[in-house]
Design a protein around this nucleic acid. Structure first.
Lengths: 133, 133
DNA sequence: CGGTTGTATCGATGTCTGTCTATCCAGACT
DNA sequence: AGTCTGGATAGACAGACATCGATACAACCG
């Protein structure tokens, strides 16, 4: 269960490693790979699942501990976990009766890097940057 | 056109400002807001559009410059731009005949912050962390 | 061995989404 | 005014997705 996630984001730093989405126009195939991961994050349930998994000190969470936190059926939670796993965001391992999931830090770090602007954070304005023509 | 994007992510730093998805379990309503933005990034075309807009030195791109880069109809591109705008990722302004879009740095910065793990990047292993039972 | 419990998979279903064509709106130019 | 051009909107439609109940699989315990 731990070895079949798709090879997303070109994990190994072979291809010059990601100028970052905000500095260069992003090729079509990179966009497809990236979109797969962001799509996995584009659901509230999956975001909460990922958050619960990532914020665990030991780094591991039993599925039996995740399922009762939602008012959703067990197959639905299992489905969402599968999508997160296929996106390379989490990794699961069966140990005895229970299955434990953990975060894959590399994938999250790569996303964070891709969304980090070169200039750091020099943004004194709030967001809509007062270009009131 | 510049003032009606949804107030996503609780832009103003009133509520203690985002421990970051990876350190705390993330409330349901926060997850809904966040998912809206990630969902906007969950499409290859929108990722490329955002990338083209963000990587522009002047910070502005004319729609007339974006549309011919894809083999998609003009309404489709317009639709994707609208979704990016509603997610608070870009902002558009009409100037004469043409419409120009620019990045909203605050939203991207917030996403980057949310995906940044507290520990920086101490990950010597590649991703599947050799738990080959 | 059979029973029980925790997860994953299967099939169905209603909703959402990406794309299109057709059309409308806003400026610019005769 | 009329007409062009760039962009947005409306409506339609196929494919994708979130969710469920039913069921299969895996591991433990009698």
């Amino acid at each position: 269960m731990s070895k079949q996630e798709l090879r997303v984001l070109g994990q190994d730093g072979v291809e010059g490693c990601c100028p970052g989405l905000l500095s260069a126009p992003l090729a079509a195939d990179e966009a497809v790979d990236l979109a797969r991961v962001f799509k996995a994050l584009g659901d509230p349930v999956r975001l909460q699942l990922l958050s619960m998994i990532a914020s665990r000190a030991g780094g591991e969470v039993c599925v039996c501990d995740l399922t009762p936190s939602f008012e959703l059926s067990q197959p639905t939670i299992s489905h969402h976990l599968k999508l997160l796993r296929e996106a390379g965001l989490i990794d699961g391992e069966r140990r005895g009766t229970w299955v434990y999931y953990r975060l894959v830090p590399a994938t999250v770090d790569r996303l964070a890097a891709i969304l980090t602007r070169p200039g750091g954070r020099p943004l004194p304005e709030t967001s809509t940057t007062a270009h009131r023509s």
